Amino acid sequence: MITSKKDKPYTSNLKGVAALLGENFNHNETANSSPHNITISKIKLPHSQPRRYFDAEKLGQLALSIQEHGILEPLLVRPQQEEYELVAGERRLRAAQMVGLEEVPVVIREFNEQEALQISLVENLAREDLNPVEETEGVLQLLSLRLKQSTNNIVSLLYRMQNEAKGKVTQNVLGSEESLAIKALFDTLGIISWESFVSSRLPLLKLPQDVLDVLRQGQIEYTKATAIARVKDVSQRMALMKAAITENLSLTQINERIKAARTTITSESISLKERYKQASSRLQKASVWDNPKKQKTLEKLLTQIESLLDENSPE
């Protein structure tokens, strides 16, 4: 009788993978699900790594938990000659290495390259601490594998689906096998709808690299990062990014600082003569002429200008 998570076979976050890979995956799952202990030195990371950033604090917390309770959920690996390639469980592997474990429990399964990568991607996407950039890249990579197309083609297809759904263009893609496959995959993952993914996630990939790096490291929320990315000057953008992180600025505060900076830049970049011309043009069309109080103010200002001109006129 199974009494604890430690005694259970590898089940983790692979619900979506079973749907993606179909009967072959389910057959593999029952064929060899008993954990084995193998030495960490025999486990190699795959060449294509879905995950790039690990939160140091959370990884340290996991290491402490493993030190106290051990690894409760086996890693998933596939045999590679005399060694094993990690399929799922990189955080557990890294944490085990941090506390000096020599062996870890694993479940060994036979997977081809595509199956292994899909499992790694889905497990990665199921993580609570996954940042939105890695989530976006992971979903695109998964769609690329599923539809056997490049990620650039997938992005174009998603935007065409969005435009058709909004009635901006003639329906040509919606209802096709490709779009149905995309919708099915998003339903399987259950983390975000395809519509929200296109409108809120794909734009992240167009952010400046410096913003992307900070966002990928989980130092700032993507809504704040998107706002900061509107600042074109790199030094100003980095200064605002640093302030947003260290001072924990709200999105409203960030937008206020951006607005203030733009006002300052505009005032400095426009010459005094140009400002006068703009103000004069606006004044002629303004409704201040019908307001007696404002007329008096204008009269005083005009008198000052006339006096200034008289002082500087040639004798």
Rank of each mutant, 00 (worst) to 15 (best):
G138M: 07
S196V: 04
E23M: 08
Q219R: 13
L189A: 08
L145C: 14
P79H: 04
E113S: 15
Q80A: 14
I192C: 14
L283D: 05
R275E: 06
D187I: 02
F111S: 08
Q219C: 06
T136V: 08
S193I: 01
K44D: 09
T303S: 15
L21G: 03
P292Y: 03
T263V: 06
L59V: 01
E247I: 00
N28Y: 02
T263K: 14
K6V: 10
N112Y: 05
A261Q: 09
N248D: 12
Q118Y: 02
R146P: 07
K259I: 03
G100V: 05
L125D: 07
E90R: 12
V99C: 15
E137F: 02
V155H: 05
V122I: 12
S267T: 04
A229Y: 00
N255D: 11
A31I: 00
V17N: 04
S280L: 14
A126E: 12
E311M: 11
M238E: 13
K294G: 05
E102L: 15
G89I: 01
K300N: 13
I270G: 03
N153A: 14
Q295V: 10
I270E: 13
A116K: 02
H36C: 07
T223I: 06
K8I: 02
R94K: 15
E82D: 15
V155N: 06
V122C: 12
P35T: 00
E23P: 10
V173T: 12
R160G: 06
N153E: 13
N13W: 02
E268K: 14
L283T: 00
P46Y: 00
S269M: 11
L147W: 01
R275S: 11
L86A: 07
E164I: 04
L240G: 05
H47W: 00
I245G: 09
V198M: 08
S199T: 15
E195S: 13
T223N: 08
S200A: 13
F25S: 06
L202N: 06
E195G: 05
K293V: 13
I2W: 11
Q118A: 15
L62C: 07
V17S: 12
W289D: 09
Y10K: 12
S313H: 10
L72S: 11
R51M: 08
F186A: 12
N26T: 03
R92Y: 07
A165I: 00
V155G: 05
S196E: 12
L180D: 13
S313M: 11
E221H: 06
L64A: 13
K293W: 01
A95Y: 03
V104L: 10
D55H: 09
L309R: 08
Q217P: 08
F186E: 05
K293A: 15
L212Q: 15
D210Q: 10
L143P: 10
E123D: 15
T246N: 12
E274Q: 14
S12R: 11
I192V: 14
I228S: 07
L147T: 08
T3N: 12
T246Y: 02
L75W: 02
V169L: 13
V211I: 12
Q114W: 01
R237C: 06
S269W: 00
K285H: 10
A279G: 09
F111W: 13
L212P: 03
P292Q: 07
Q61I: 01
S271Q: 08
Y222V: 08
L302H: 07
L249R: 09
I71H: 03
S307C: 04
E178H: 10
H27L: 13
L86W: 01
